[in-house]
């Protein structure tokens, strides 16, 4: 075991874990932030998506040892009151069904819109294709990303 200091949602956390422990499990089991989900563990479903220095990454495949001095943001820290334009758009479009994948979807969308603030529908569909939604809320995710882009523009 080794000690690591992580900067998550602007808070410092000290954790004592094996170096190969993925960030996903450090967040869930050690820091007790449960919003980041486990879906596959092999970077294929996107349920575990977080931001590392503002960019979307699959936390299930990031060993804790690679995160020194990185700024980690989870769904809990995306906005102070759940009012990030992407979160607002998700509520307005009533996207969630079972809801399990949606934290990851929102994190992917938020990061994508930073790099491409005015995406075409095809760009959205490609960008979001790394996130599986077994409830198949894809049509609404697409609409919500369009709506979030409009909201961001107005800000």
């Amino acid at each position: 075991m080794s000690m690591y200091t992580l900067l998550v949602n602007n808070n410092h956390y000290e954790v004592d874990v094996e170096p190969d422990t993925p960030l996903l499990w450090v967040l869930r089991d050690h820091i007790k932030l449960k919003g980041t989900k486990y879906g596959c563990g092999i970077a294929m479903c996107g349920a575990c998506t977080v931001h590392i220095d503002g960019e979307a990454a699959r936390s299930c495949s990031l060993p804790v040892s690679s995160l020194a001095r990185k700024r980690i943001t989870t769904i809990e820290g995306l906005s102070p009151d759940g009012d990030h334009p992407v979160q607002q758009a998700w509520v307005e479009e009533d996207v969630a069904q079972c809801g399990y994948c949606q934290g990851g979807q929102i994190m992917s969308a938020a990061s994508f819109l930073k790099t491409n603030p005015m995406p075409s529908v095809d760009e959205i569909r490609m960008a979001m294709s790394g996130n599986i939604c077994r409830c198949a809320s894809y049509n609404r995710i697409e609409k919500a990303v369009v709506l979030a882009a409009q909201k961001l523009k107005q800000q």
């Binding site: 449960k34 919003g35 979160q87 509520v91 069904q97």
Partner: peptide, 18 residues
């Protein structure tokens, strides 16, 4: 709308694994 929408988009611990 889904009555749990706000809890879901803010990552609240709602599920079995949580």
């Amino acid at each position: 709308k889904n009555v749990d929408a706000n809890n879901i988009v803010t990552g609240k611990p709602l599920f079995g694994l949580d």
